[in-house]
């Protein structure tokens, strides 16, 4: 652009190429584990054990590895558990957070300031903090080792309330007034007028929530003992620690199975993912 600095075409090309070179080198490091995971999952055990870094498998051994993985660990059940847990958590989170966020954004009610203060404070309390007392309470009610125990600490998402409150706050008051004048109840007003306009924020939060809870390991590791209630990360941990620990081929096959759903979701909905991240930064 700048005439004086307008370097010769060759120099510009060189600079351009250099940037790309660095970016590609970075991309290789970023993607290498994924590539190796996929490649190893279809390699024969003998070839894996011989070491080396030649990427192309000598023979296709995929069916065997995946079959072994599925035989040793019930990945289908892990995935089903993961799907149920993520879906229920997300639905309850939205059902709880949307009215609360609307109340905080647009309605005057006693204690609003205190509640909002607690929500903001709650933002810096991760699950690991209340984990101990929650565990004891669940043990008391004999609820450990079940899907409910997996989900209950996450029903309230202070982050969802915070994010949606910011979104609802930007919703024009005039429209709300107009809807009230038209005789809409607050409940109708919220779900039929305000929420439809918050689509991007809800979608962004949904992505955020599903990713977080599909990938969470800490809490499942605490409350789940029996494999038949394990979500994918816990299943993976069990698998990696079990006797198959040296059978890297099927272990990689397991890793592929566990990571594939979110990776595919990401490739399909990259914009939403990025939006979800960016929204966390715009406060």
């Amino acid at each position: 652009m700048r005439p004086s600095k307008r370097p010769g075409d060759a120099a510009r090309l060189l600079r351009h190429a250099l940037v790309h070179l660095c970016l590609i080198a970075g991309a290789v490091i970023m993607l290498m584990p994924f590539a190796w995971m996929a490649l190893t999952s279809i390699r024969a055990p003998a070839e894996i054990l011989s070491g080396g870094f030649w990427p192309i498998p000598e023979s296709f051994h995929g069916f065997k590895n995946y079959e072994t993985a599925l035989r040793i660990a019930p990945f289908g059940m892990f995935m089903l558990n993961g799907a149920i847990v993520c879906a229920v958590i997300l639905i309850v989170q939205l059902l709880v957070a949307i009215p609360a966020a609307y109340a905080l954004a647009k309605l005057r009610f006693p204690g609003r300031g205190v509640l909002f203060g607690l929500i903001v404070a709650g933002l810096c309390v991760p699950i690991q903090v209340p984990a101990l007392p929650l565990y004891m309470a669940l043990a008391e009610f004999k609820l450990l080792d079940g899907l409910f125990a997996l989900m209950v600490p996450f029903f309230l998402s202070v982050f969802a309330i915070f994010l949606l409150r910011q979104t609802f706050k930007a919703f024009p008051d005039e429209i709300i007034q107009a809807a009230r004048v038209d005789g809409m109840s607050e409940f109708e007003l919220l779900w039929r007028v305000v929420v439809p306009s918050a689509g991007p924020a809800v979608a962004a939060f949904s992505v955020f929530s599903v990713v977080a809870h599909w990938n969470d390991l800490y809490w499942p590791m605490i409350v789940i003992q029996r494999l038949d209630h394990a979500p994918p990360p816990l299943g993976m941990l069990f698998f990696a620690g079990s006797e198959s620990g040296s059978d890297f081929g099927s272990m990689m096959a397991g890793a592929v199975i566990v990571t594939a759903p979110l990776l595919l979701l990401f490739l399909v909905a990259r914009r939403r993912f990025v939006q979800g991240i960016t929204m966390t930064g715009i406060k």
């Binding site: 652009m1 700048r2 005439p3 004086s4 600095k5 307008r6």
Partner: peptide
Amino acid sequence: GLETQGAGHVRLDEVVVDAMAP
């Protein structure tokens, strides 16, 4: 000098400044 013209010249005090930075 924030944009480069496709054709023609800019002269300041009769000096062509096309290649100069702002």
